[in-house]
């Protein structure tokens, strides 16, 4: 027995691996695999031609940025041979990243490359390299602003969601709350939160408080509206079933109506989040002396448009990350909906 085993020829592991052919469907097609590196090379060429009359350090930084991207894309193109998950991810995202880099190159042609024919006047439209440079130069202030924005946003959003859920559940469940609450909601709710700024400035002890209040107000309306409609549209038969199974009123509210309303509640949370971004930026622009909204106005005041765009880029990353956190929470809470509806 043991002899037999010993006699068996040993195949070197590396040789064995080479023999395994990946099924065609799971391989990443060459054009997708190469889309990102090729796009980066094109962007570098564009940069090389258009950056002759740009400041030296901008050029270097942008080259470094593209170079690192290039290295990373090659590394991932190599690593994907060992990970099916990475392959799927590449198939999904490589075309998008490639096109985004080409878009940067086109942007550079328009802004820096064609400077001799004033397509876009200079101080207002810096090249991507210039924006990148501003971002790096001012990183401390940008980081600080992002931090302040995050604190303000989370404070206001949490407050608005908490109050919105409570009022929404009350209006949705109790007829008396509905009778008196609905008119208030319908009349006061549609006023954009930013329209209250004059009042907020008078009433509130500090700009910080008024900003949190305004964001909370902006979030409160959609959350209340959708929670209330979700709760009041709970299928009557679910409630009947629960009652014949011995459910108390608190069971009916917390274990039937609220879970049944969850899809609606999340709609409200998403709408509220959008409203909170808008209100945050406006509030920072007007009263608060910190945050990304303030930064944009401040940079514009100094005509540093590179910084304005840098702040916009960070805002995009910042807001979309927060949005995707909410998506993740939704996916977790509403996992039972998977297969019922298309997300």
């Amino acid at each position: 027995m043991s002899q037999e085993l010993a006699v068996q020829p040993r195949i070197p592991i590396s040789a064995e691996r080479e023999q395994i052919e990946l099924p065609a469907s799971s391989r990443v097609p060459a054009k997708i695999l190469l889309s990102v590196p090729v796009a980066i090379i094109l962007a570098l060429i564009v940069h090389w031609f258009s950056a002759k009359n740009e400041p030296e350090n901008e050029t270097r930084l942008y080259n470094l940025f593209l170079g690192e991207m290039f290295g990373a894309s090659l590394l991932i193109a190599y690593l994907q041979r060992f990970s099916a998950g990475l392959r799927e991810w590449m198939k999904e995202t490589c075309p998008i990243i490639g096109v985004a880099i080409l878009f940067l190159a086109i942007l550079e042609i328009i802004t820096a490359g064609l400077r001799w024919m004033p397509l876009l006047p200079m101080p207002y439209f810096p090249s991507p390299a210039g924006v990148l440079q501003s971002m790096i130069n001012d990183r401390e202030l940008l980081f600080d602003s992002t931090w302040h924005s995050l604190a303000l946003l989370l404070g206001g959003y949490t407050l608005g969601v908490t109050i919105g859920l409570i009022t929404g559940i009350c209006i949705g469940w109790f007829p008396l709350a509905r009778y008196w609450g609905m008119p208030v909601l319908k009349v006061v709710g549609p006023i954009p939160a930013t329209a209250w700024i004059p009042l907020a400035m008078i009433v509130s002890p500090s700009a910080m408080f008024s900003a949190i209040g305004l964001i909370a107000l902006a979030v409160w309306f959609p959350v209340t509206m959708l929670t209330a409609s979700g709760i009041s549209n709970t299928r009557a038969s679910y409630l009947d079933v629960a009652r014949t199974l011995g459910a108390s009123r608190s069971y009916l509210i917390f274990r039937v109506a609220i879970p049944a309303a969850m899809p609606n509640i999340f709609l409200g949370l998403f709408m509220g989040l959008g409203a909170s971004f808008l209100t945050l930026i406006v509030a920072e622009t007007i009263g608060v002396k910190s945050g990304l909204g303030w930064y944009v106005t401040w940079a514009q005041g100094w005509a540093e448009y590179g910084k304005v765009y840098a702040a916009l880029v960070i805002m995009a990353a910042f807001f979309s990350s927060i949005m995707s956190v909410l998506f993740k929470v939704r996916d977790h809470v509403l996992v039972w909906q998977k297969g019922v509806i298309k997300w």
Binding site: V241, A242, G246, S248, R255, P259
Partner: peptide, 29 residues
Amino acid sequence: NAERGLVFQDPNLFPWLTVRRNIEIGLVA
């Protein structure tokens, strides 16, 4: 009352609960 059970034509299972949790409703309630 829990002593009088009712089963409808539509099963009316709570879609957010697993089979097990659906059966547990009466005990939880």
